[in-house]
Measured scan of single mutants.
Amino acid sequence: TTYKLILNGKTLKGETTTEAVDAETAERVFKEYAKKNGVDGEWTYDDATKTFTSTE
């Protein structure tokens, strides 16, 4: 399943996707990605669109 991440950081904005077996796995991948890029925001998830959003 393809999951999408929308980053709305103070210094980094953008989108990326990952293939994962479930939302929990995708969330771990995306949170590590955000951390590596210095984004520490509030997380939301929309199951209908398989989209995570992190907003600082």
Rank of each mutant, 00 (worst) to 15 (best):
T1W: 10
T1Y: 13
T1Q: 11
T2E: 09
T2N: 07
T2G: 04
T2K: 11
T2S: 09
T2P: 04
T2L: 14
Y3L: 02
Y3V: 02
Y3Q: 02
Y3H: 03
Y3W: 06
Y3N: 02
Y3D: 02
K4R: 12
K4W: 10
K4A: 04
K4S: 05
L5C: 12
L5V: 03
L5H: 01
L5F: 08
L5Q: 01
L5G: 02
I6F: 06
I6H: 04
I6S: 03
I6R: 05
I6M: 06
L7S: 02
L7C: 06
L7Q: 02
L7F: 12
L7V: 07
L7P: 00
N8W: 11
N8H: 10
N8A: 09
N8C: 14
N8T: 07
N8I: 14
N8R: 10
N8S: 09
N8L: 13
N8V: 13
G9S: 07
G9C: 07
G9D: 03
G9R: 03
G9M: 07
G9A: 06
K10M: 13
K10S: 11
K10C: 13
K10E: 10
K10Q: 12
K10Y: 12
K10A: 13
K10W: 13
T11G: 11
T11K: 10
T11C: 15
T11V: 11
L12C: 15
L12G: 08
L12F: 15
L12Y: 15
L12D: 05
L12M: 14
K13F: 11
K13W: 11
K13P: 04
K13I: 11
K13H: 11
K13A: 08
G14R: 13
G14D: 12
G14Y: 15
G14I: 15
G14S: 14
G14Q: 14
E15M: 12
E15N: 07
E15P: 03
E15G: 08
E15Q: 10
T16V: 15
T16K: 09
T16C: 15
T16Q: 09
T16E: 06
T16H: 14
T17S: 11
T17F: 14
T17C: 12
T17V: 08
T17A: 07
T17M: 10
T18W: 08
T18Q: 05
T18A: 08
T18H: 08
T18D: 02
T18R: 04
T18M: 14
T18S: 05
T18E: 04
E19I: 15
E19C: 15
E19L: 14
E19A: 08
E19K: 13
E19Q: 14
E19T: 14
E19Y: 15
E19P: 04
E19V: 15
E19D: 11
A20R: 02
A20H: 02
A20M: 03
A20Y: 02
A20D: 02
V21S: 12
V21M: 12
V21F: 12
V21G: 11
V21Q: 13
D22Q: 02
D22H: 03
D22F: 03
D22L: 04
D22I: 03
D22Y: 03
D22P: 00
D22V: 02
D22N: 10
D22K: 03
A23E: 07
A23Y: 15
A23W: 15
A23I: 13
A23Q: 12
A23R: 14
A23C: 14
E24A: 13
E24R: 09
E24V: 12
E24F: 09
E24D: 12
E24H: 10
T25G: 06
T25D: 08
T25K: 06
T25W: 07
T25Q: 13
T25E: 14
A26S: 01
A26C: 02
A26E: 00
A26V: 02
E27N: 05
E27C: 14
E27K: 10
E27R: 10
E27S: 08
E27Y: 15
E27V: 06
R28C: 09
R28T: 08
R28P: 02
R28A: 12
V29Y: 15
V29K: 07
V29Q: 08
V29C: 09
F30C: 02
F30L: 07
F30I: 00
F30P: 00
F30Y: 01
F30N: 00
K31S: 04
K31W: 05
K31R: 15
K31H: 09
K31E: 03
E32Q: 08
E32Y: 05
E32R: 05
E32D: 11
E32K: 06
Y33P: 00
Y33C: 05
Y33H: 04
Y33V: 05
Y33I: 09
Y33L: 06
Y33N: 02
Y33T: 03
A34Q: 02
A34I: 06
K35Y: 11
K35M: 11
K35A: 13
K35W: 10
K36N: 13
K36F: 10
K36M: 13
K36G: 06
K36P: 01
K36A: 14
K36S: 11
K36W: 08
N37Q: 13
N37S: 09
N37E: 09
N37P: 01
N37W: 14
N37D: 03
N37H: 15
G38Y: 05
G38L: 05
G38I: 03
G38W: 05
G38S: 06
G38K: 06
G38Q: 07
G38V: 03
G38R: 05
G38P: 00
V39D: 03
V39K: 02
V39G: 03
V39A: 06
V39P: 02
V39W: 14
V39H: 10
D40N: 14
D40H: 13
D40E: 13
D40A: 10
G41N: 04
G41A: 05
G41I: 05
G41P: 05
G41R: 03
G41C: 06
G41H: 04
E42F: 13
E42G: 05
E42K: 11
E42R: 09
E42W: 11
E42N: 11
E42I: 15
E42L: 12
E42M: 12
W43C: 03
W43Q: 01
W43N: 00
W43S: 01
W43P: 01
W43H: 01
W43L: 08
W43A: 01
T44W: 08
T44G: 06
T44Q: 10
T44P: 00
T44I: 09
Y45P: 00
Y45E: 01
Y45K: 00
Y45C: 02
Y45R: 00
Y45D: 00
Y45Q: 00
D46Y: 03
D46E: 06
D46L: 03
D46R: 02
D46T: 04
D46F: 03
D46S: 05
D47Y: 08
D47E: 14
D47C: 07
D47N: 09
D47A: 14
D47G: 08
D47R: 08
D47Q: 10
D47H: 11
D47P: 14
D47W: 07
A48K: 11
A48W: 06
A48V: 11
A48M: 10
A48S: 12
A48Q: 11
A48T: 13
T49C: 05
T49M: 07
T49N: 08
T49W: 03
T49R: 06
T49A: 05
T49Y: 04
K50N: 07
K50E: 02
K50T: 03
K50L: 07
K50R: 11
K50S: 05
K50P: 00
T51E: 03
T51H: 01
T51Y: 01
F52C: 01
F52I: 00
F52K: 01
F52V: 00
F52L: 00
F52R: 00
F52Y: 05
T53G: 02
T53Q: 07
T53K: 06
T53L: 07
S54V: 15
S54M: 15
S54C: 15
S54R: 03
S54P: 04
S54A: 15
S54K: 03
T55M: 07
T55G: 05
T55I: 10
T55A: 07
T55Q: 07
T55K: 07
T55S: 10
T55R: 05
T55D: 09
E56V: 07
E56R: 03
E56W: 09
E56Q: 09
